[in-house]
Amino acid sequence: MEFFVISLLNGVSYGLLLFMLSSGLTLIFSMMGVLNFAHAAFYMVGAYVAYALGLKIGFFPALFLAPLVVGVLGALVERYGLRTVHRYGHVAELLFTFGLAYLIEELVKVVWGLAAVPYRVPEILEGPLFTLYSTSFPKLRGFMMLVALLMLLSVFLMLTRTRIGLVIQAALTHPETAQALGHNVPRVFMLVFGGGTALAGLAGVIGGVAFITEPSMAASLGPIVFVVAVVGGMGSLVGAFLASLLIGIVQTFAIAVDWSLGGMLAVIGIVVNEQTPLYSLWKLQLSQVAPVLPYLLLVLMLIFRPKGLLGTRAD
């Protein structure tokens, strides 16, 4: 029981971090049709900027400032890079962000070096939030969950309840009409891109402190974020939310289970040993394959339901 609850909490909190990351990606995709390959790179920049700012002004001010910095950076990238490429179509935009990911990673290395930086948890978030039986649940993870939920709420409210949110929605589905009504559509795109990257930056502030802030953190998390966005349904924020939780929980529980195909066969009376053909497949335990389950999920999802969980468009 203890194990189950703790694993569930671990799964949910990891899922929520994934959601923070993928929400920005989903937002940008649903509104601009741009699949931002550099999204995880902005996540990394968020962590590094928060680290650098945190040294001067402390963790909590940096929590607010770093996403802003990343957002401005994203807006600049949109204004002076993506906009130029926009006329060549979506593939060119995708390739642009693909190159951008390389570039950002290298720039981070040039500025902050190759090693991990000592980005530490502020003291107030250190230690256990509560102890369940004998396992403690860290405060930081609780904070992570809180921030993610607040973020989901505020993005949702902003998009549906504010004027600017409505303009954004209008500009994205009917750009010409919105333009004709006097709205500056390119500026809306810039805001959306900046906003999306700011969300990635926010995830970076949290993720960097929860895990490790080093130059390969973007490359290691990048593919997973895509999985979440695709499984959830391209462009669906709620879908991304569900997919993040799903992947977080599935991955966490899969690690806990030592089942293997061979073991299952043994239950029905077939004994598998080293002489059996394909032994290496039978002996693989679920826990060993846990980290690749998201990709399996992605492939299966794309085969059987290309729209994703809650997506509306297939291509």
């Binding site: 699949l35 995708l94 593919p223 999985v227 391209m234 990709y295 492939v299 794309l302 290309p306």
Partner: peptide, 10 residues
Amino acid sequence: TTFAMITLGI
């Protein structure tokens, strides 16, 4: 894009 994503997954 779906093709791109599925190749990434595979």
